[in-house]
């Protein structure tokens, strides 16, 4: 088994074997990241492929300081953002029902109440703009100001999209919860 440093050096020298090992080792994790930004698995796999091409050609820029896995995640997230910008024309396709204001309901959820598959599904069903903002803010931990710059929108848009995304997610989760309790 090669260490991360050996893999990085190998990839920097364009060794096919090192690239293959890197892919085998991290593709599961990175697809987990890409899946959060996509509407379905094929789209996520597209993003994953582009991410790996980027990783292979830029791996020599990885400074070695900081965590390698964090760098990989960042490349994947950036690729997803690029992908989002390419498909900008769909950005405003938000169903009117997604705009409904949501009454305050359950605010707390048990972690083990939902499987990660269910959570992915909830994310995938979100409108693209909501999904971007929610992922970047809630999971990746970007600030609203940074998100606004990344997506080329107003800070307030980022904030309002986040709160609307949260509302939609809450509604979907509650629905899931109700379905379950009826068993």
């Amino acid at each position: 088994m090669m260490s991360d440093q050996q893999i990085i050096d190998g990839c920097a020298n364009h060794e096919r074997k090192a690239q293959q090992i890197l892919y085998d080792k991290y593709s599961h994790f990175l697809l987990g990241v890409c899946m959060r930004y996509a509407t379905d698995k094929p789209e996520a796999e597209d993003i994953l492929q582009d991410s790996f091409l980027k990783i292979f050609s830029n791996i020599k820029d990885f400074s070695g300081t900081g965590s390698f896995i964090g760098w990989l995640r960042k490349v994947a997230v950036n690729t997803a953002i690029t992908h989002y910008h390419k498909n900008l024309k769909y950005r405003y396709h938000v169903d009117i029902e997604d705009y409904v204001s949501v009454e305050a309901g359950v605010t707390s959820f048990e972690e083990d109440y939902f499987t990660s598959d269910e959570l992915y599904q909830v994310l995938n069903e979100l409108p693209t703009g909501y999904r971007m903002v929610f992922n970047l803010y809630a999971v990746e931990g970007y600030k609203h100001k940074e998100i606004a710059e990344i997506l080329g929108v107003d800070t307030n848009t980022s904030k309002s999209q986040y709160s609307r995304a949260k509302a939609v997610i809450r509604e979907k989760l509650e629905k899931l919860g109700k379905l379950r309790s009826s068993y």
Binding site: H28, F29, L31, E45, L48, Y120, L123, L173
Partner: peptide, 21 residues
């Protein structure tokens, strides 16, 4: 919700299509 997604999906893994590699 924020914590839920971060914990659950922050490091989640999904197996890609075997042909993708």
């Amino acid at each position: 919700i924020r914590e839920l997604f971060r914990h659950k999906l922050g490091n989640a893994e999904i197996a890609p299509d075997p042909l993708l590699g």
